[in-house]
Design a binder for these strands. Structure first.
Lengths: 228, 228
DNA sequence: CACGATAGTGTTTTTGGTACACCTTGTCAA
DNA sequence: TTGACAAGGTGTACCAAAAACACTATCGTG
């Protein structure tokens, strides 16, 4: 993040504006979040969401993308605005308004993200087992999680967790770990297939000592979003 | 709104932050929005959403409430954050990030709002017949409307349009004007009553030359929000 | 070739949503 | 006084989507 040294003497002081990004993925059947270790004060050494200050001539979305890329190496991620946090005491340096985003990335995007710029380290953390977080970032992650679960019902965001080719069992695992409850296999497959959003690749996935599973892909990777 | 004269020479210039509020109500069976006529440049004389600059030690929600009260006289309104707009060119004066809110108020809150501070006039406008709007406020209202309609399905926000006591027919009118389609009376009443959120007041409403209607009230006015 | 492990498949039941028509109770005017 | 008008209020039959539920198929391995 940027240096906090400036103070304001203007008649109408302006707050700083940042973007922060909650990136979710599924690892080993567990929902995980991408965090960076802060290299600088405040909260030096603490884990925090990737994010940083808005450039004065930069769109909010672009800022979120840029900071995510700079601090974690993640690019081409579909970001959606989550909420804007602005408690007056949320940053000890100065007044900071944070416009937050969330994103879902497929498991294979895990290719260990590289730390860069003001991040001392980057890592994935199980949602159920997060470290102490800087600022109000725990609250932000919590809201992102609630939004994610709510959207499962009436949208198809879960596909965003999937790699290009996947099996129905894998998809079901994703739903189950997000909803935190088992689902009926037949009903699940019926429902997913009736959406008419995925198609067989023709290939099979042979893993383990059992019958191989059919692979599927999303039909129109562009518009995988709201249904209802 | 505040004077735009300042420019920044800091190493990291900060954008200005405003809040803007979309207030909806139902008037004569039509969805209406509260607008203020701008007293100052830019867009002087144009209609715009009530809103204004964030004080440096003020919470976002408080800013929205304060600006709404200052410019329209409306108080004690339940505000919900909508979205944050930040296109770099959305304000000709300087870079402005707007955290927007929306609110639903009952019809009787209509008591002609008073213009104040930098608003030259205040008025309700039918959503279907809005005037030219300043900044990107048309876009903001549009998003608020879509959010409102979407929430009708899985929440009970519509109750927020109702006065303390109301009849089922009145409530149905509200739903019909929001959804822009007629509803079946019996199904509607069945659905609403099955929510178990309202109760009879015991009183009757006698209007017009016909049978009086039973009055209802919301059981727990505090938690009238999300159902599902 | 038998066993273990996951893949894959249909039917029945339940439930929630939709469609639909008539009687009731008041006002008002002839 | 009474008949016409206007909105208030009520129940049932049908359909479609969701939930419950158990067995066979195919591969790897020992």
């Amino acid at each position: 993040m940027r240096a906090p040294e400036q103070t304001f003497s203007y008649r109408y002081p302006h707050p700083a504006v940042t973007t922060d990004v909650v990136v979710f993925t599924i690892r080993d059947g567990r929902l995980c979040t991408l965090l960076v270790k802060r290299a600088n004060a405040p909260y030096q050494g603490s884990w925090a969401l990737p994010g940083g200050f808005l450039d004065i001539d930069e769109d909010l979305d672009a800022c979120a993308e840029r900071e995510l890329a700079e601090e974690t190496g993640l690019t081409d991620v579909y970001l959606e605005q989550l909420f804007t946090f602005g408690r007056t005491d949320r940053d000890p340096r100065e007044r900071v308004i944070s416009v937050t985003y969330y994103a879902l990335v497929p498991q294979h995007a895990l290719s260990t993200p590289r730390a860069a710029s003001d991040a001392a380290a980057v890592g994935w953390f199980a949602f159920e087992d997060l470290p102490e977080l800087a600022f109000d970032h725990a609250e932000i992650i919590d809201m992102a999680h609630r939004r994610l679960v709510a959207k499962l019902d009436y949208s198809t965001i879960a596909f965003q967790f999937m790699p290009e080719a996947f099996t129905l069992s894998e998809l079901q695992c994703v739903y189950e770990s997000l909803l935190n409850q088992p689902l009926d296999k037949r009903n699940f497959r019926k429902r997913i297939l009736s959406l008419d959003l995925i198609e067989e690749t023709g290939c099979q996935r042979r893993t383990g000592k059992h019958r191989p599973a059919r692979e599927y892909r999303v039909k129109h990777p562009d518009r995988v979003e709201i249904i209802k």
